[in-house]
Write a protein that binds this DNA or RNA. Structure first.
Lengths: 150, 150
DNA sequence: ATATATATGCGACTAAGTCGCAACTAGCAC
DNA sequence: GTGCTAGTTGCGACTTAGTCGCATATATAT
């Protein structure tokens, strides 16, 4: 498991005003076991603070994103146009989305870090966010498709 | 300039039925000088075939995307939630989006190709699409910000 | 020329996200 | 603790992007 930021702690350090709603949302994201979209986060956050509103969720997600505390993902639009959110991890990682079964895998490799450095150097670019998403077929689905075709 | 697919030719080869509307849209994408969203593509395609409808644009983009002829981009949502489209190039490339000035740069490097192979091998994954987007500040904007801060 | 599977336009619809504004409150000063 | 105030929230109406069903039209094979 990749080491994740402690959002609540970091928010406090960054001088982000901690309202009950923000706490509820931040804790929800922090404890999430999968990638959740804004609507799901809203529903879950409401279990902690029933008063939280949709607009607040969007505004807070935007804030955390700008502060580099969370990442926004598309997961190759396997399920419509929603966006998904996850706590930023120490090391950058990429997401593999299987078009066959919908499974999402995460992956890290030093090559990714190397690529990042190369991008920054060769383009004189100061990187704040990096999003690498891959779509295709996982081993099982590829095999299954092969069987059908052959 | 990266070598791009010849969409019209490829569509014919793939047995895609070439209607006037599809021709209009495909030519529009092929000749586009920047990354265009669905609505812009619609407006431009209408100059070639005034009858083309929004739904047809979306349906055709979806088709071309599934066939691997075009790529869909977010460009880090610099301008809202739209998606942008571009003709698939021979070599994979990534997009750098500057949060300061909104400039979009493209970049290729063998490391990216290497990463792609590594992803496929180490995860036993058959890659169909790969999208790498980077957000941050270009050299100029980073310097300007530095000046303001210092 | 005809048949037919496929594509299109229309228009109404859904989903995701945004915004202005009055009311509320976290965190600070005292 | 009390009060102050800039920052935050809820509300509800709105925008924007994209989807869908169905009657009509048409590209392609024969």
């Amino acid at each position: 498991m990749l080491k994740r930021h402690d959002l609540l702690h970091e928010a406090a350090q960054q001088g982000i005003r901690l309202t009950a709603q923000r706490r509820a949302l931040i804790e929800t994201i922090q404890e999430a076991k999968s990638h959740l979209d804004a609507e799901s986060l809203l529903q879950l956050a409401r279990k902690r603070d029933p008063n939280i509103d949709r607009a607040t969720v969007y505004r807070t997600l935007e804030l955390l994103k700008r502060r580099g505390m969370i990442d926004e993902l598309d997961l190759m639009h396997l399920n419509g146009e929603k966006h998904y959110y996850e706590v930023k991890t120490q090391k950058d990682h990429l997401h593999l989305a299987c078009f066959g079964c919908g499974k999402i895998e995460e992956f890290t490799t030093p090559t990714f870090e190397k690529l990042k450095r190369e991008i920054a150097e060769k383009n004189d670019f100061s990187i704040q966010v990096m999003r690498l998403e891959v779509g295709g077929l996982c081993g099982q689905c590829a095999a299954r498709k092969e069987a059908l075709a052959g």
